[in-house]
Design a protein around this nucleic acid. Structure first.
Length: 422
RNA sequence: GCGAUCGUAGCUCAAUUGGUUAGAGCGCCGGUUUGUGGUACCGGAGGUUGCGGGUUCAAUCCCCGUCGAUCGCCCCA
C-alpha cells in the first residue's frame, strides 16, 4: 500500500459515526448556549503572533514550543490560534466591545497546538467556547458554569463527569499563596521530583497537580489557599458556590486545581472524567480578570470556558446517523424527470429524500433498504405511462400505487403515521 | 523533547519454532431473480505484508534504520 500523501501528524479525517458524534456535540452546544443568551462570535483562525505570545508570556514553553507560527509573504509573524480567549480579547479591545458589556459570546472551531498526539489530544483539534467579557459579578461565573453543566447533561454525559471547583483568589491572595508554596516546596528539594524542581522555578502552582508519587505527600501538606484569602476574595468564592447550589449544579472543591498564568483570578473549574485516559478534562475554564488589561486594553473582568469537541464526542452515546425518510427509485430515462419533480416536492415540504443513482432495480432497492428510509418510491415505465408512482413500505413490504399529483401529500400523511393509502 | 507497543486486502484481523501459491469476515462488483431491498446460496475483483537495508538456502516472522499509528511522560493556554 503506497501512501504518497498523508494527513499531517495529529490531524484527523472524519466520516460516518465519528463525524455524526462531532456534529451532535456542536449542534447541542449551539442550542443550549442560546438558552443562556450567548450570541455567536467569529474571530480569525490566525492572529498576529503577539496576540498569543503577549497574553501567555514570551518565554513559556507553550509559546516557544507549542504554537504553529509562520511568516506571511509580507514577513508579518502570524500564529494559528492555540486557544479562543486571546483572539476574542483582542477583538474586544480592538473593536471597543466594552460599549456592549457585558458581552456574552460563544464560538466553536479548530485550534492548533504542536503537541505529540495521544488519546484525546491532536495538533488540530476543536473546541467549544463560551465567554462573558466585562462582567465582574460572581453571577457571571455561575452562569457560564451552569451553561457547561446543562450542555453535558443534554449530551447525556453528565453522570460520567465531575465538576471540580477552586478559587485562585484575587491578585493579592494569589501572590501570597504562591510565595507560601515556594517556601514550602523549597524546604523539601531532596524529596521533590525532578520535574517539580523545574516547576518550582517556572510554575510553582503546577506542582500541586504533579503525577509523581514522591510528590504526593508534600502536596498534601502544602499550604492551602484558604489561609491566604482576602475577605473580598473569600466572599466572591462563597457567592459563586451559593449560586451554583441555587442553580442545582453539583461540584466538588479541588484545592489543587490551578492555572499557570497570572491573569487568572478567582474561579477556576474543570469538568473531568476518568473515561479518557490521561486527558481527563472535558471542559475547563475560569475567571481571567487580568488578561485584557495585560494585553493593553482597559482593565476588564471576564470569565469563560472551553471544551474539547473530540473528547466530548468520544463520551457521547452513539448518535443516529442522518437518514432520509424516502428513497426514490427511477427506472428508465422517462422516469428521471418525474423522479426529480417528486424529490423537489418532498424536500420542499420538509421530507428528507434521496435518489439512488446507480444499478438495476434490485441494486437500488438494496441501497434504499440500507439508507434507513421508511418508504421507497418506485417510478418505472408503467408508472410513467399511468401517471402514478409505486410506494413501498420498507418495513412491512406493503406496496400501493398513488397518483403522481397526490403523492407528496399521501407520503407526508403516511410518514406522519397514517399508514399506506392508495 | 523522552519512553513503550504496533504497522498484512477498502475496513477488522489470521498465517505452526523462519518454509514453498499470504487466508477469513465485513464491504464492493456480478449471478441465482429482463421491475422489488432487509435473510440465503454461488462466483469475482482487490496485496511489492508501510518503506529501505541486513542476516539466511529461504523473511509477514529475526536485526538495523526510517516513516506512520497508538498509549504514557513532559506540557497543558
Amino acid at each position: 500500500m503506497t501512501r504518497s500523501i498523508q494527513k499531517p501528524r495529529g490531524t484527523q479525517d472524519m466520516i460516518g459515526e465519528q463525524a455524526a458524534r462531532f456534529d451532535h456535540v456542536v449542534e447541542t452546544f449551539n442550542r443550549v448556549r442560546k438558552l443562556y443568551g450567548f450570541g455567536r462570535v467569529e474571530v480569525p483562525v490566525f492572529e498576529a503572533t503577539a496576540v498569543f505570545s503577549r497574553s501567555l508570556g514570551e518565554t513559556t514553553d507553550v509559546v516557544s514550543k507549542e504554537m504553529y507560527c509562520f511568516e506571511d509573504r509580507g514577513g508579518d509573524p502570524l500564529t494559528l490560534r492555540p486557544e479562543f480567549t486571546a483572539g476574542i480579547a483582542r477583538a474586544y479591545i480592538e473593536n471597543g466591545w466594552q460599549q456592549h458589556a457585558p458581552v456574552k459570546v460563544a464560538a466553536w472551531g479548530p485550534l492548533f497546538r504542536y503537541e505529540r498526539p495521544q488519546k484525546g489530544r491532536f495538533r488540530q483539534f476543536h473546541q467549544l467556547d463560551a465567554e462573558v467579557l466585562g462582567a465582574g459579578e460572581p453571577a457571571a461565573d455561575v452562569e457560564v458554569i451552569a451553561l457547561a453543566q446543562q450542555l453535558l447533561a443534554e449530551l447525556g454525559v453528565a453522570d460520567r463527569v465531575v465538576l471540580q471547583l477552586n478559587t485562585l483568589g484575587d491578585a493579592e491572595t494569589r501572590s501570597a499563596w504562591r510565595a507560601a508554596l515556594v517556601a514550602h516546596f523549597s524546604k523539601h528539594l531532596d524529596v521533590l521530583s525532578a520535574e517539580s524542581r523545574e516547576r518550582l522555578e517556572k510554575n510553582p502552582l503546577r506542582i500541586l497537580d504533579s503525577k509523581a508519587e514522591s510528590d504526593k505527600a508534600l502536596v498534601a501538606d502544602a499550604p492551602r489557599i484558604d489561609a491566604y484569602m482576602t475577605a473580598e476574595a473569600g466572599a466572591f468564592f462563597e457567592s459563586v458556590q451559593r449560586g451554583l447550589e441555587a442553580s442545582s449544579v453539583a461540584f466538588v472543591r479541588a484545592e489543587s486545581l490551578v492555572r499557570g498564568f497570572d491573569y487568572y483570578r478567582h474561579t477556576a473549574f474543570e469538568f473531568v472524567t476518568d473515561a479518557l485516559g490521561a486527558q481527563g478534562t472535558v471542559i475547563g475554564g475560569g475567571r481571567y480578570d487580568g488578561l485584557i488589561g495585560s494585553m493593553g486594553g482597559p482593565e476588564t473582568p471576564a470569565v469563560g470556558w472551553a471544551g474539547g469537541i473530540e473528547r466530548l464526542a468520544m463520551l457521547v452515546a452513539e448518535p443516529v446517523l442522518p437518514q432520509v425518510s424516502v428513497a426514490v427509485i427511477a427506472m428508465g430515462g422517462a422516469a428521471e424527470p418525474v423522479a426529480l419533480r417528486l424529490l423537489a416536492g418532498l424536500r420542499r415540504v420538509g421530507i428528507a429524500a434521496e435518489q439512488g443513482w446507480r444499478g438495476n432495480l434490485k441494486k437500488k432497492m438494496e441501497r434504499a433498504g440500507k439508507s434507513g428510509a421508511r418508504l421507497a418510491v418506485i417510478i418505472g415505465e408503467d408508472e410513467v405511462a399511468g401517471g402514478t408512482v409505486t410506494v413501498r413500505d420498507l418495513g412491512s413490504g406493503e406496496q400501493v400505487p398513488l397518483m403522481f399529483d397526490a403523492a407528496v401529500t399521501a407520503i407526508a400523511a403516511s410518514l406522519a403515521g397514517g399508514g399506506l393509502q392508495g
